[in-house]
Simulated assay, not measured.
Amino acid sequence: MRGVLRQRLWHFLSFGAPGITVYVCFVLAPIVLSFGYSLTNYNPFNPPTRFVGLRNYRMLFQDSEFLLSLRVTTILTVIVVIVPNVLGLAIALLLDRRGWFYNALRTVFFTPVVLSTVVVSIIWIRLMADDGLINQALRGIGVASPPGWLSDPSYALYSLAIVLSWQMLGFCVVVYLAGLQGVPNELQEAAAIDGAGPLERFRHITWPMLAPALTINTVVMLISAFKVFDHVQVITKGGPGTGTTATVAYNVIQTGFVANRQGYASAMAIVMLVIIATASGIALKILQRREVQL
């Protein structure tokens, strides 16, 4: 008995402990420290630090800037969850062919995913500038006054959503392509013999079997969009105007490292963590239940 326990302890120390240690040090510990800071008025340039309890959290939900950033982040997340999923599925269906040409196209669509966010942002700044390629093309087809994609508050948030959707589109394409590889050809052929058309085969065979791919894409897009910071920092810096494109993550960085209100910024980060965890958990539960039912 002692030998078995000693062997299990050795296995745990050899294989489990390193992973658990990394997880505790780089995930759990920062979360606990952030929660601790969120209960204080911590400001490294304005000591002393005092315990304020839940005051930061009460202030958050009376803070118009935070509530605006929450609205901006929600709109951005909804767009980024829907657009790459819909377009990614359509493109994956078109690329589900064999041949070097289709392999090359898959590489082209996936390339933006591995590009640096800063590089992607700078490219789109040039494209969406008032005298950029997009507006020049619009003027060429007769649009006298093209919109200011990044300078007009009415368009800036949606322009940002386009950039983020474009970069994440390749991820959705690859996941859906992987799902399409798991659809048995025998089912498709049997349905075709029974007289089912392409739309019927997609509805009753292909789409149900893509349920795991939909789950992965939805959850990844949701998390990626809700915590977006770098695109905002490079492209719009939260503008134009006041907070037009300022996301919650952008406000966390600005409050913590520009205004140096790190206690308040920690409260923002904890609220953001709770929202992301809750939304992801609900989405995962609903989509996995659909997988089981199918």
Results as ranks from 00 to 15, higher is better:
Asp230Glu: 12
Gln262Ser: 06
Ala283Ser: 12
Lys237Gly: 14
Ile125Leu: 15
Leu210His: 06
Val174Thr: 05
Ala249His: 04
Tyr176Ser: 03
Gly19His: 10
Asp130Thr: 07
Leu294Cys: 07
Ser224Arg: 14
Leu54Glu: 09
Pro18Thr: 01
Gln62Met: 14
Val163Glu: 03
Arg2Gln: 09
Lys285Arg: 14
Lys237Leu: 13
Thr247Ser: 14
Ser34Gly: 13
Val271Leu: 04
Thr206Trp: 02
Leu169Lys: 15
Asn56Trp: 07
Ser165Arg: 14
Ile205Trp: 02
Tyr176Pro: 01
Arg97His: 00
Phe109Leu: 12
Phe110Cys: 04
Val72Gly: 13
Ala92Thr: 04
Met168Ile: 03
Ala144Glu: 09
Phe51Gly: 04
Leu284Trp: 13
Met268Tyr: 12
Phe35Trp: 12
Leu67Gly: 02
Leu33Cys: 08
Asp230Arg: 03
Thr49Asn: 06
Asn260Gly: 05
Ala90Gln: 00
Ile275Met: 03
Thr206Phe: 04
His11Gly: 07
Thr117Arg: 11
Ala267His: 09
Phe229Gln: 00
Ala259Ser: 10
Leu177Asn: 02
Thr218Trp: 11
Tyr250Met: 12
Pro240His: 02
Val234His: 08
Asn217Arg: 10
Ala104Lys: 02
Gly241Pro: 05
Thr218Asn: 09
Leu9Phe: 04
Ala178Cys: 03
Arg8Gly: 02
Pro153Leu: 08
Gly88Trp: 01
His231Phe: 13
Leu138Val: 08
Glu65Ser: 07
Gln293Gly: 07
Val81Cys: 08
Asn135Ser: 13
Val120Leu: 06
Gln288Cys: 08
Arg6Ser: 07
Thr245Phe: 10
Ile125Cys: 15
Ala104Phe: 07
Thr236Leu: 04
Leu13Ile: 05
Arg203Leu: 05
Leu68Asn: 14
Thr49Tyr: 05
Ala191Asp: 00
Ala249Asp: 11
Asp194Pro: 05
Phe109Gly: 12
Ala196Ser: 11
Ile91Pro: 03
Val32His: 02
Arg201Leu: 14
Leu210Tyr: 06
Ser165Leu: 11
Tyr250Gln: 14
Glu65Pro: 00
Gly170Leu: 03
Leu222Gln: 12
Asp131Gln: 11
Pro18Leu: 02
Met168Phe: 10
Leu5Thr: 14
Trp166Lys: 13
Leu169Gln: 14
Val114Leu: 09
Ile216Met: 08
Ala161Lys: 07
Ala283Lys: 06
Leu115Lys: 13
Gly256Gln: 05
Gly195Arg: 01
Val175Lys: 01
Pro212Phe: 07
Gln254Cys: 00
Trp100Val: 13
Val108His: 10
Val174Trp: 01
Trp207Met: 14
Phe101Asp: 01
Leu138Gln: 11
Gln167Pro: 09
Leu60Val: 06
Tyr42Asp: 04
Arg58His: 05
Leu222Asn: 12
Gly256Ala: 06
Ile123Thr: 13
Thr245Arg: 06
Asn251Gly: 03
Thr255Trp: 03
Ile125Ala: 14
Ala211Lys: 00
Phe45Val: 11
Val81Gln: 05
Thr107Cys: 13
Gly99Val: 10
Thr278Ile: 08
Ala190Tyr: 06
Val248Glu: 12
Val174Pro: 01
Ala137Gln: 14
Leu93Gln: 05
Gly238Tyr: 01
Arg289Trp: 09
Pro147Met: 08
Leu180Gly: 06
Thr40Ile: 02
Ala137Gly: 15
Thr107Met: 15
Val72Leu: 06
Phe61Pro: 09
Gln233His: 11
Ala265Tyr: 09
Ala265Pro: 09
Ala283Val: 04
Ala137Ser: 15
Arg55Glu: 15
Gly53Pro: 06
Ser154Glu: 14
Arg2His: 06
